[in-house]
Design a protein around this nucleic acid. Structure first.
Length: 244
DNA sequence: ACAATATCCTGCGAGC
DNA sequence: TGCTCGCAGGATATTG
């Protein structure tokens, strides 16, 4: 399920492959990412924005399959294949990126301690896990990485912001950056469908400590990893390391 | 302002 | 072997 590290992996690979090429007659001058959205930017400021959602794949020079939803063709004959098994993903051409910039929260890898504390202070009543997954609050974190971040930070997913100490908040931010950066360096997590821009699987799933590890032993304390339902999603955590 | 639930969709694996 | 059923979750809409 593409979250920030998966989309960033695709972005880095695509940037090398398609900058300078022409798409729909327009020269591509940048490939950016905002949250979980990939942005192919043209010289005139227009852009093609793509959200892979759950099962979207963007494969440079990939082959067409029954799950191919669109083919982006570049001048010169190369192409970018947009596959999406479950059809949640979308793409569109926009005049500029102001709208998505406005709708999305801060970029977790760019935020500093002071700003993070500031935006958290306005959400005292919120539970930390759903808040980390709220794209209007902070952009790019989904179910996998929110679980892994909170485990690394030793914070229970149900904790309310108002109960978090200053040190705990710092731990959340520090581990958010640490986990996301580490996941990017391993080309993301391929639980089922994620593939990078060259059709390869990511390698970060082997470093997961709690996500889909229910019943397995915590690598820190040996307790069994538990799972609870939260906002219609599964939250995985260690009941001993992550006290309520 | 928050929580819970349904919705979209398809593939997969568990259980019978 | 083959069937049904529940589950996976990003984002949004709806209801409480």
């Amino acid at each position: 399920m593409p979250e920030l590290p998966e989309v960033e992996t695709i972005r880095q690979q695509l940037a090398k492959s398609i900058i300078g090429k022409k798409l729909q007659g327009k020269e591509i001058v940048r490939v950016r990412r905002r949250g979980k959205i990939l942005i192919i930017g043209f010289r005139d400021g227009q852009a093609v924005i793509i959200h892979p959602k759950m099962t979207g794949q963007l494969i440079f020079e990939g082959s067409v399959s029954k799950h191919t939803r669109h083919i982006f063709r570049f001048e010169g004959g190369t192409k970018l294949i947009f596959n999406d098994i479950r059809k949640f993903g979308w793409w569109k051409k926009v005049e500029n990126t102001k709208k998505i910039e406005k709708e999305l929260g801060v970029e977790p890898l760019k935020i500093n301690k002071k700003t993070f504390k500031n935006i958290l202070s306005r959400r005292q009543n919120a539970r930390i896990k759903p808040l980390l997954m709220d794209q209007k609050f902070i952009a790019g974190i989904g179910n996998i990485y929110s679980d892994e971040i909170l485990y690394a930070a030793k914070i229970h997913p149900l904790r309310k912001v108002m109960t978090l100490s200053s040190k705990e908040i710092e731990r959340v931010l520090r581990n958010t950056k640490k986990i996301l950066k580490s996941a990017i360096s391993h080309q993301g997590s391929s639980i089922r469908n994620f593939r990078d821009a060259f059709g390869r699987k990511g390698n970060f799933a082997r470093f997961h400590k709690v996500y889909q590890k229910e019943g397995q032993k915590c690598t820190r304390c040996g307790n069994r990893i538990k799972r609870l339902k939260l906002g219609g999603r599964s939250a995985h955590y260690c009941p001993k390391c992550q006290k309520i």
